[in-house]
Amino acid sequence: MKAEKLNPSVKMAVILVGAVALSFQYYITVNVTVFLGFMLMLVFFSNAKKKSILALLLPAFLAALGLFFMGLYYARGNSLSAESMESVSNLPYAVRAAASANLLTALQLATRLLAFAGMGIFFGLTTDGERLVFSLMHQCRLSPKFAYGTLAAVNLLPNMVKEYGQVRTAFEMRGIHVGPVSAKVIFTMLVNSIRWSESVAMAMESKGFCSEEPRTFHYVLHVKWYDILFAVIVLGAIIGGTLILTGIPGSI
C-alpha cells in the first residue's frame, strides 16, 4: 500500500479539513503527532525520495523557527524584549514565568506550522498533478475546461522559466540592467503569456477540444475503501486527540 494510490481529491479534502481542525486547537502534542505521523507515512508508505523531503522540510523549518522566535519575544500579554532574554538565570521569577508562558505560545505556533508543513509535503510528494486534476474532474465536478486549462498552464512552467532567462538576457544585451522582479521583465513575460494563452486555446480547439459537449475519459479515478480508511484515521486522530486532551487538565 503506497500513499501515491490514495485518491487525490480525498487526500486534499482530508488535509484541508485537518488544517481547519488544527487551527482551532493549541495542543503541541496533537501538532507534533500530526507532523511525525505524516513524515512516517512519507518515509515508509511512499516512493518519495529522502532528498526531496529534506528540500521541502528546510524552508518549513526556517518558517517555523521565525514563528517560534516571534512567539517567544512577542506573545500577547507578556512580551519580552530580546535583551532581557540573554541572562535568563539572573532574572526574577516573574520574568522567567512570563518567558515560560511565551515559550509555550512559541511552541504552539511553530509546531502548528510544522503540522501544516507535514501534511503539505506529504501531499506534494505523493500526488501526481495530472491525477489530481483528473480526480478533481471526477470527484469534485470541476469542468473539463478548467481542468485541461490548468494542466496546459502548469505544463508551460518549464517554458516560462526558460523564457524568464531569455528576457533578462535580452535586456542585459541592450545594456538595460534589470533586477530579479523588474516590472519590465514581468511585462514582457505577460505579453508572451497572453500570446501563449491564445495559441494554446486555438491549438486545443482545433484538435477537437470542446467543453460544452459530453466527453469520455481514459482515466477515471474512484474512491476506494482505503481512501475512507485514510480519512477516518487522520481526521479521527486530529479531532479525537484534541477532544481527549481537552478532557485532561494541564495537557499541552
Binding site: 486549462g149 513575460m189 503569456s193 494563452s197
Partner: peptide, 14 residues
C-alpha cells in the same frame, strides 16, 4: 471561454 481560462491560468503560473 477556454481562452480566458488559459489566460488567467498562464498568468497565475507567471
Amino acid at each position: 471561454k477556454l481562452k480566458d481560462i488559459l489566460m488567467i491560468a498562464i498568468c497565475a503560473v507567471l
